[in-house]
Simulated assay, not measured.
Amino acid sequence: MVRAGLTAERLARAGAELADEVGFDQVTVSALARRFDVKVASLYSHLKNSHDLKTRIALLALEELADRGAAALAGRAGKDALRAFADVYRDYAREHPGRYAAAQLRLDPEAAAASAGGRHAQMTRAILRGYDLTEPDQTHAVRLLGSVFHGYVSLEMQGGFSHSAPDSQESWSRTLDALDALLRNWPAP
């Protein structure tokens, strides 16, 4: 019998919390069943399998990130918008490491179409309009920003900057200054 109150959404939220606690790779339907003190089989009326659970967590994380990004960008332009958007990703990864890892999950085409991934791309392109980039340079810049944000955050979360001066906050700030300068002076092909 399915425990009252369990829904796919509630399970995804609980899975996201579990991911932040133990790591996204450690999230399974079995671990989630233990959290709710139910049999694994009772969760299968809401979830197809562990991949479905992980996809739902990824979709939740992408939605949360997009909501935060939209709020941070409201009324901002240029360097201020770039910094606000970048800080959203860094702060989210620090606050929710498991969810941040989930947001990197490669989604199948159907899930990707239903995700907030498109909102992320639209926000990034909105920032870039302040730098007067046209295609294909805008696409190159979207990829550059995503690579820098994710790369920096991933290295920082793994302790890559913890044993040397200057501190990582100063390097983050300088990195964003450098990105702003690059975007304002985008090289011609």
Rank of each mutant, 00 (worst) to 15 (best):
M1V: 11
V2K: 09
G5V: 04
E9D: 15
L11A: 11
A12N: 06
R13S: 05
A14Q: 11
A14K: 12
L18G: 02
D20F: 01
V22S: 11
V22L: 10
G23D: 11
G23Y: 07
G23T: 09
D25H: 09
D25E: 15
D25W: 03
T28P: 06
T28S: 15
S30D: 12
A31W: 06
A33C: 10
R35Q: 14
D37M: 12
K39Y: 05
V40K: 15
Y44Q: 12
S45R: 14
H46P: 00
H46R: 12
K48T: 13
S50C: 07
T55W: 04
T55Q: 12
T55P: 01
A58K: 02
A58L: 00
A61L: 03
E64V: 06
L65W: 00
R68P: 08
L73C: 05
A77D: 14
A77R: 14
D80F: 01
D80C: 07
A81R: 08
D87Y: 07
R90S: 06
D91N: 13
Y92H: 15
A93I: 09
R94T: 09
H96F: 08
P97G: 10
G98I: 05
A101M: 08
L105K: 03
R106M: 04
L107G: 07
D108C: 05
D108F: 01
A113D: 13
A113T: 06
S115P: 11
G118C: 05
H120R: 06
Q122I: 02
Q122K: 14
M123R: 10
T124V: 13
G130S: 12
D132N: 12
L133S: 08
E135Y: 04
E135T: 07
D137H: 15
A141K: 07
A141P: 07
V142G: 04
R143P: 00
R143F: 09
R143Q: 11
R143N: 13
L145D: 01
S147T: 15
V148I: 14
H150M: 02
S154D: 10
S154Y: 05
E156Q: 14
M157S: 14
M157R: 15
M157H: 11
H163K: 12
S168A: 15
Q169I: 05
R174L: 10
T175N: 03
L176I: 11
A178I: 01
L179E: 04
R184Q: 13
N185L: 05
N185S: 14
W186T: 06
A188Q: 13
P189N: 09
